[in-house]
């Protein structure tokens, strides 16, 4: 049985906010099934007693002094915006959707 189905890929694409054509879904489902089959071997090696490592250096809660310093101007921050209005990012409608 396949590790991942075409419907799974369609669902993941929806979660990842990527529109996908029927052809892309077909192709990707096959490829991902092969890739997952190959990477699943990570399950073979470590016992329950092995702790996970999420990061190579053990740093936690790094903070800096809370002082005001120069930063981007409003115009600089907006300089790459696809659309802007009144000094703000202009986005498409977000209400009225499901």
């Amino acid at each position: 049985m396949a590790a991942i189905s075409r419907d799974d890929v369609a669902h993941l694409a929806k979660l990842a906010r990527i529109e996908m054509s029927e052809a892309e879904l077909d192709h990707l489902a096959k490829e991902l099934d092969v890739i997952l089959g190959a990477v699943a071997r990570v399950q073979e090696v470590a016992g329950a007693d092995v702790p996970p490592t999420s990061h190579p250096i053990p740093v936690n809660n790094v903070v800096r002094e809370d002082v005001v310093r120069p930063s981007l101007t409003q115009q600089e921050a907006l300089s790459g915006a696809p659309a802007q209005a009144d000094g703000r990012f202009k986005v498409p409608q977000i209400l009225g959707e499901e």
Binding site: L36, V39, A40, V42, Q43, V45, A46, V50, P51, P52, T53, S54, P56
Partner: peptide, 15 residues
């Protein structure tokens, strides 16, 4: 757990 979690454990073993 099966995928990302196992991979993180492999990372420990690699170190």
């Amino acid at each position: 757990d099966a995928y990302y979690g196992s991979a993180q454990k492999v990372r420990t073993l690699l170190m």
